Deep mutational scan, measured.
Amino acid sequence: SAVVMEEGSPGEVPVLVEPPGLEDVEAALGMDRRTDAYSRSSSVSSQEEKSLHAEELVGRGIPIERVVSSEGGRPSVDLSFQPSQPLSKSSSSPELQTLQDILGDPGDKADVGRLSPEVKARSQSGTLDGESAAWSASGEDSRGQPEGPLPSSSPRSPSGLRPRGYTISDSAPSRRGKRVERDALKSRATASNAEKVPGINPSFVFLQLYHSPFFGDESNKPILLPNESQSFERSVQLLDQIPSYDTHKIAVLYVGEGQSNSELAILSNEHGSYRYTEFLTGLGRLIELKDCQPDKVYLGGLDVCGEDGQFTYCWHDDIMQAVFHIATLMPTKDVDKHRCDKKRHLGNDFVSIVYNDSGEDFKLGTIKGQFNFVHVIVTPLDYECNLVSLQCRKDMEGLVDTSVAKIVSDRNLPFVARQMALHANMASQVHHSRSNPTDIYPSKWIARLRHIKRLRQRICEEAAYSNPSLPLVHPPSHSKAPAQTPAEPTPGYEVGQRKRLISSVEDFTEFV
């Protein structure tokens, strides 16, 4: 048969007729292969192709491409040299491709048809291009793949890379869960390890502090508590009631339409708007009261037996805890006409967050109470924005700035309102402590230090009264110190430094 060459192609190359033996071998191979691939376009007849790359030819070592076609129900084999250009295909004639002069020997084609199974398996396991790669995943090629499931790999992101949580363990979102698992493993320790309690022994800490320079003076030496005195035992138990972190309780009120001037209507609300609910979820963490331990979680007086509701929101960081007394989460009882059960919590909070959804101005004093010092007013606006402002009593104007209003988005509203309420509550605590000038409020841990110092002074006084020969370590507060001759004046800087060093040991009130 003659071949018409394309323009620009090399000279004529004689194409030899395939021997009958080659056709029989390739026909047997075509019957084993699956003929249901995917359909081509209507211009080209339905056909199945599979590209198999052999590394070497037997005796020649030339890479070839073998295409199996099922045109007219008769499979045909096409061998081509890759750099050459194939002729145009037609549905009426068999596929013809040019070969190099080196394939002119018909014996070479017979060798190609009689490829060993080793070469076929190696060509099938190679990388296939384009559409033949999808075909190689079918059941027909499963014989050339190794048996057994593939090893499982770690989760992959859409980009093909490992997620960040699997790369950096410290930033993994499941870090707290692993800590819980470690605690569970520790709890399952053997009885021999049960006595080993991690941490620092208080006796060891005391020993280090006792021999430090801070205890060089007799006034700073630790003293032993009497065991037989019940009054001192009660004082030590009272110390446990003062937490070592700051605590805040903040009221949250929802004002519906037409309720801006009605205290009873505001306290009777059992739910609010959708934006109000989203605002609550951002204030803190939802907790169930019956599962809380009052000595570990500050509840601000809420009952854990269901008297004040089942849930509330709280927030904490390293040095403070805040609980929100939310009116809509507290039960509304029919027998309580004046809502006294709610007001006994909300009316005693220094700061209230008022979500004013009424469309009218909310005035300070609508919720009557002796300790309502500051109101954080949240007014929802259009386009997911809110107006946040402050209202306070006249005696609080020096501590709280009420002249600045803020426009905040719904997303950042819980954070801004919480921070403003916490700052206002700190100012309210300082303002409330002014009624007792001898006990200015600095912080909870300073209050613990003052309680310890008062307890020490009482013990020293009782020891001096029981044994008059012992001198008083600290003179009583009601006694007057003996007159001392004025010492020589020293520079102001040295006096300030000495006073600062003494105050650092005794108390921190002056620095606050």
Results as ranks from 00 to 15, higher is better:
residue 496 G to K: 08
residue 252 V to Q: 00
residue 217 D to T: 12
residue 415 F to C: 03
residue 389 S to I: 04
residue 328 T to D: 03
residue 354 V to T: 04
residue 369 G to T: 05
residue 240 D to L: 04
residue 443 S to D: 08
residue 307 E to I: 09
residue 441 Y to H: 15
residue 396 M to R: 03
residue 447 A to P: 13
residue 263 E to Q: 04
residue 277 T to K: 15
residue 386 N to H: 11
residue 300 G to N: 15
residue 285 R to N: 15
residue 249 K to A: 14
residue 360 E to V: 11
residue 281 T to C: 13
residue 309 G to N: 14
residue 391 Q to P: 00
residue 286 L to G: 07
residue 312 T to L: 10
residue 444 K to H: 10
residue 375 H to S: 15
residue 302 L to T: 15
residue 445 W to K: 08
residue 321 Q to T: 13
residue 427 A to T: 05
residue 474 H to D: 15
residue 445 W to V: 06
residue 410 D to T: 01
residue 326 I to Y: 02
residue 429 Q to C: 09
residue 438 T to Y: 07
residue 396 M to T: 03
residue 364 L to N: 12
residue 230 Q to C: 12
residue 263 E to P: 05
residue 355 Y to I: 01
residue 277 T to G: 11
residue 269 N to Q: 02
residue 321 Q to K: 12
residue 223 I to P: 08
residue 438 T to N: 11
residue 302 L to D: 15
residue 266 I to S: 03
residue 375 H to R: 04
residue 301 G to K: 07
residue 234 R to Y: 11
residue 225 L to P: 10
residue 378 V to W: 00
residue 447 A to R: 09
residue 377 I to T: 05
residue 308 D to E: 13
residue 400 V to W: 15
residue 435 S to V: 09
residue 428 S to P: 01
residue 369 G to F: 07
residue 474 H to E: 15
residue 414 P to A: 13
residue 224 L to W: 10
residue 370 Q to D: 14
residue 332 T to E: 07
residue 242 I to Q: 08
residue 463 A to K: 07
residue 355 Y to W: 03
residue 308 D to L: 09
residue 241 Q to V: 05
residue 303 D to A: 07
residue 222 P to W: 06
residue 276 Y to R: 00
residue 247 T to G: 04
residue 313 Y to K: 05
residue 497 Q to V: 11
residue 347 G to S: 15
residue 217 D to C: 11
residue 417 A to C: 09
residue 441 Y to Q: 14
residue 401 D to I: 03
residue 382 D to G: 04
residue 295 D to I: 03
residue 284 G to Q: 06
residue 257 E to I: 05
residue 437 P to Y: 06
residue 356 N to H: 01
residue 258 G to C: 04
residue 493 Y to H: 14
residue 268 S to V: 02
residue 392 C to M: 04
residue 339 R to Y: 15
residue 438 T to H: 10
residue 494 E to P: 13
residue 387 L to F: 04
residue 306 G to M: 06
residue 462 E to N: 10
residue 360 E to H: 05
residue 439 D to W: 07
residue 430 V to F: 10
residue 435 S to I: 10
residue 310 Q to F: 14
residue 358 S to R: 01
residue 283 L to S: 00
residue 312 T to P: 04
residue 502 I to S: 15
residue 305 C to R: 06
residue 343 K to C: 05
residue 245 Y to E: 10
residue 237 Q to F: 08
residue 445 W to N: 13
residue 347 G to A: 15
residue 270 E to H: 06
residue 273 S to M: 01
residue 219 S to Q: 14
residue 331 P to Q: 06
residue 373 F to M: 15
residue 419 Q to G: 04
residue 296 K to Y: 11
residue 343 K to F: 09
residue 495 V to N: 14
residue 500 R to V: 12
residue 352 S to P: 01
residue 410 D to N: 05
residue 315 W to T: 03
residue 256 G to F: 01
residue 411 R to K: 14
residue 236 V to A: 08
residue 323 V to G: 03
residue 276 Y to G: 01
residue 475 P to W: 11
residue 461 E to V: 09
residue 323 V to I: 08
residue 419 Q to R: 01
residue 349 D to P: 10
residue 457 Q to P: 12
residue 445 W to T: 12
residue 418 R to K: 06
residue 502 I to T: 14
residue 374 V to T: 03
residue 320 M to F: 13
residue 406 K to A: 15
residue 349 D to K: 04
residue 247 T to C: 14
residue 349 D to F: 12
residue 454 R to A: 15
residue 499 K to V: 09
residue 343 K to I: 14
residue 441 Y to P: 11
residue 390 L to P: 01
residue 448 R to Y: 09
residue 412 N to K: 04
residue 333 K to F: 14
residue 282 G to H: 04
residue 331 P to L: 03
residue 334 D to F: 12
residue 461 E to K: 08
residue 402 T to M: 07
residue 321 Q to E: 13
residue 455 L to E: 13
residue 502 I to L: 10
residue 340 C to S: 14
residue 232 F to R: 06
residue 342 K to S: 06
residue 476 P to V: 10
residue 251 A to C: 05
residue 428 S to L: 08
residue 475 P to F: 12
residue 499 K to N: 13
residue 391 Q to D: 09
residue 401 D to W: 02
residue 490 T to C: 14
residue 329 L to N: 05
residue 360 E to D: 09
residue 254 Y to V: 00
residue 438 T to W: 07
residue 473 V to Q: 15
residue 463 A to T: 14
